[in-house]
Amino acid sequence: MSDLSRNGFLKLVRGGFLWLSAALGLGGLLRFLNYDPNPAPQSEFDLGPATNFPLGTRTGIADGQFVLIHDELGLRAINTTCTHLGCQTAPGPDGFTCPCHGSHFDLRGDVLQGPAAKALNVPSVELNDGGHLILHD
């Protein structure tokens, strides 16, 4: 430390300040760009009276983002968003097919064929006091 000359010290301080202000500026810029101006996406959907969905029906909900299936296995909702990279899968007679990279899912949402590695999300559906089905994503 003792041989740190006056000039060397000033140089160090100057360099330090320059780097510090660059880092602060960059950090501020990143925080500025990182703000999400959009409202949080809807996570609760009122599907109406449960009697609207008798056994054997399949109903698309919210532009097809979910499908409500009522069959021998029971009543359940499936989120049709592909778990690979987020395209919307198309429901078919025995499952869901993704238009982007060809993943297949069965009617429970489980993967039949990749590239998707995870099953389709299954949001919970419950009956409220008024007899309406409520979907929680």
């Binding site: 703000y35 101006p37 996406p41 987020g86």
Partner: peptide
């Protein structure tokens, strides 16, 4: 959707990159 979701798959900084590129939502 697929192009921007690819950003999210990057470990650690994925979500950050996504929101900088897309603005969230």
């Amino acid at each position: 959707i697929t192009g921007t979701n690819l950003l999210k798959t990057i470990p650690l900084m994925g979500n950050y990159l996504y929101s900088i590129a897309v603005g969230g939502g």
